[in-house]
Design a protein around this nucleic acid. Structure first.
Length: 485
DNA sequence: TGTTACTTAAACACTT
DNA sequence: AAAGTGTTTAAGTAAC
């Protein structure tokens, strides 16, 4: 399934990209930024400043087959299965259409950026608790009756408009059972008719943020942010630590996607700056793809290095409060410790972000928190006693029991901290691996997108209105090497 | 293989 | 009484 190749010069490619994106975002800062960049012809090798610079200059892969440069190895492992090339007369990729027409109710394919307004047949990749959380967070008062939660979900995820009504039951079920949500006291004079107002329990908000971070398709939120001049606070809080973030399969490389990455990882809320970043990234990707074709060792070395990395299916958890899934946001969650590292919503450096910081030397305690050392058992709503079999904490000596029933005593905590230190050392010594992994993640992302939607650049080319119109021939992988794969 | 997270379905009580 | 809401139980799937 060869992709269309292009003989266009980089300049003309850039021009077409600018034109297309400008049309997609008429009058926006992005258009201006693109035009500004277009006027500035001095686009000196943007690759050199990206994470791929190191990959491109990799000299350690002299042997093996040349066809690796064609990225065909991506397909060897069926990584690109179900990915098709081509467009229909409307400019939509055939792949896109095939997904729209896919059988109803299936989970959204992981290799395609999720657009809830477009992939209306795809089951949203968010759990109900995440959906409820988003609804509540986007509410001005941070509290909603179930009816309005239904409405928010319906309006933001049209999938549910045709879904069986059972999903409403699931929403209510979640509200009832999920400890992250609680009813607002009725004595506040609200007259909302039936039922109560529901809100997020502040104690568990970090858990929900964490859960949302763990879900793929953060870019959806990023796009929402672009469209919204004042993004919801929780979106801002979805960011990881800027220092040496761990990138998961769906994470954004700060080098390749500075805009998205900054949205997830940086404090800046300078929209224009970010838009310019994403525009530059788009052009950089094109330049990168051409530079890549010139280097026969590129993909080969990348492949070899990826082989040293953990399985791509295994999430390397960009964001975790703990390694223990039970400490997430579930019905039996463990509370994020507020005593040692009190969570202050929206405040920089609050606990929700600490788990990202592997870059400082004094963050072992942060790690410990991230591992749930300071976690506290969760009691079910209305319960005065810990549930049978649930983890518990000894309030006297601070021993913490894990969800597996083991108790983390102070001694165990010390051992654990030692493990955390060792882990961090390994992290440091694996610095190169991490960089390669970041590049690999981004490359897989890029390759999947470029082959499935040959005129799209990751998430950046998606229109803010969600209509998915892509710049023509802006595909960084549409060079001949990738076409043959 | 067992555990956990999550979804889905269903029943039932309560409220408006 | 009907509809909506809230709670609870149970079964099933998927990932780890």
């Amino acid at each position: 399934m060869p992709c269309q190749s292009t003989d266009e010069s980089d300049a003309s490619m850039r021009q077409r990209l600018v034109t297309s994106l400008s049309q997609s975002f008429p009058g926006s800062a992005l258009s201006k930024a693109l035009q500004c960049m277009n006027d500035d012809e001095d686009m000196s090798d943007p690759l050199s400043s990206s994470c791929f610079a190191e990959l491109r200059l990799d000299k350690e892969a002299p042997e093996e087959d040349d066809e690796l440069t064609s990225l065909s190895w991506l397909q060897d492992g069926n990584l690109l299965k179900d990915i098709h090339c081509g467009e229909d007369e409307n400019g939509d990729s055939l792949k896109e259409n095939s997904e729209i027409k896919q059988e109803y109710g299936f989970p959204h394919p992981s290799h395609v950026p999720y657009n809830p307004q477009k992939h209306i047949n795809s089951k949203p990749p968010y759990s109900f608790s995440c959906l409820i959380f988003m609804a509540l967070e986007e509410s001005p008062t941070k509290m909603l009756p179930v009816k309005d939660i239904y409405q928010w979900i319906l309006s933001h995820f049209p999938y549910f408009q045709n879904a069986p009504t059972g999903w409403k039951n699931s929403v209510r079920h979640n509200l009832s059972l999920n400890k992250c949500f609680k009813k607002v006291d009725k004595d506040r004079g609200q007259t909302i008719g039936k039922g109560s107002l529901w809100c997020v329990d502040p104690d568990f908000r970090p858990n929900l943020l964490q859960a949302l971070r763990k879900t793929p398709y953060h870019p959806y939120h990023q796009l929402q942010m672009l469209a919204s001049p004042q993004p919801s606070r929780y979106i801002q809080e979805l960011r990881p630590q800027p220092l040496a973030p761990r990138l998961g399969p769906n994470s954004i490389s700060p080098h390749l996607f500075p805009f998205l990455s900054r949205r997830l990882g940086g404090p800046s809320l300078d929209i224009d700056s970010d838009i310019k970043d994403v525009a530059q990234t788009l052009v950089s990707l094109k330049s990168w793809s051409q530079a890549k074709a010139d280097n026969a060792n590129f993909a080969q070395g990348l492949k070899r290095k990826i082989g040293q990395m953990p399985s791509p299916r295994k999430p390397r958890g960009p964001v975790i409060c703990t390694d223990n899934p039970s400490t997430d946001h579930t019905y039996s969650i463990t509370r994020v410790e507020a005593d040692e590292d009190e969570y202050i919503p929206g405040s920089p450096g609050s606990s929700i972000d600490d788990e990202y910081d592997f870059g400082s030397d004094d963050d072992v305690d942060d790690l410990s928190d991230a591992e749930g050392v300071g976690s506290r058992p969760l009691k079910r709503k209305g319960d005065n006693l810990d549930s049978e079999g649930e983890s518990g904490v000894d309030e006297v000596d601070g021993c913490v029991s894990n969800s597996d029933g083991s108790v983390r005593t102070p001694i165990k905590r010390a051992r654990f901290l030692d493990q955390a230190k060792r882990h961090r050392f390994e992290e440091t010594s694996e610095e190169e691996k991490k960089k390669i992994a970041e590049g690999a993640d981004a490359l897989l992302n890029l390759a999947g997108i470029c082959l499935s939607r040959p005129r799209a650049f990751a998430f950046g080319a998606e229109k803010l209105d969600g209509t998915n119109e892509y710049p023509e021939d802006s595909d960084p992988g549409s060079d001949s090497s990738a076409d043959d794969s």
